[in-house]
Design a protein around this nucleic acid. Structure first.
Length: 155
DNA sequence: GCCAACGTTGGC
DNA sequence: GCCAACGTTGGC
């Protein structure tokens, strides 16, 4: 059981979009960074916890809690020749990018990035390191517990 | 829109 | 394999 933070642009897929999806589940598509891909491919397990983070928006921050509900499989968007995630070097026989399915579990108090930066327990989070821009990053169990507790108990 | 920081590409 | 140039991310 591991924990992850996954960034999504809410204009594209927000946490509410996932809550509104069938079975509150969506495919996590569009990852085009090898390190993030390798986390999904090599380290993620069904049942892992996800902090669903909104990036590139007015108030970036953790929008909810989700869970990994599938193993890795080829990301369909790499084959869509008209789409923004098309990769001409990827083929169905040799896919380059993968997805996992993500299910929304719990929405609580929104936790803005600025508040995260003010929490000493979170100072070592990968997300908060200078220059960090990984779209998927590992979260320790201590960081996870701090954030989940905040989300559940902060008015 | 700016820009710092990082990742990728491609010539050599 | 080096590294300059370019592209992207993402907070502000």
């Amino acid at each position: 059981m591991r924990y992850w933070l996954m960034k999504s642009e809410p204009d594209e897929v927000s946490f509410d979009d996932v809550l509104a999806a069938p079975a509150q589940t969506v495919a996590w598509f569009g990852v085009r960074n090898y390190q993030a891909r390798n986390f999904m491919r090599d380290a993620m397990q069904v049942g892992d916890g996800i902090l669903f983070y909104h990036s590139s928006c007015a108030v970036p921050g953790v929008a909810g809690i989700a869970e990994v509900v599938s193993g890795p499989y080829p990301d369909a968007s790499q084959f869509d020749s008209g789409g923004k995630y098309f990769d001409p070097k990827a083929t169905p026989a040799q896919p380059r990018w993968i997805s996992v399915d993500v299910q929304a579990k719990e929405k609580g108090r929104y936790l803005p990035l600025a508040e995260m930066r003010a929490m000493p327990a979170l100072e070592d989070m990968v997300l908060l390191q200078k220059g960090s821009r990984l779209s998927i990053s590992p979260v320790t169990s201590a960081q996870w517990n701090t954030i989940v507790d905040f989300i559940r108990t902060t008015p």
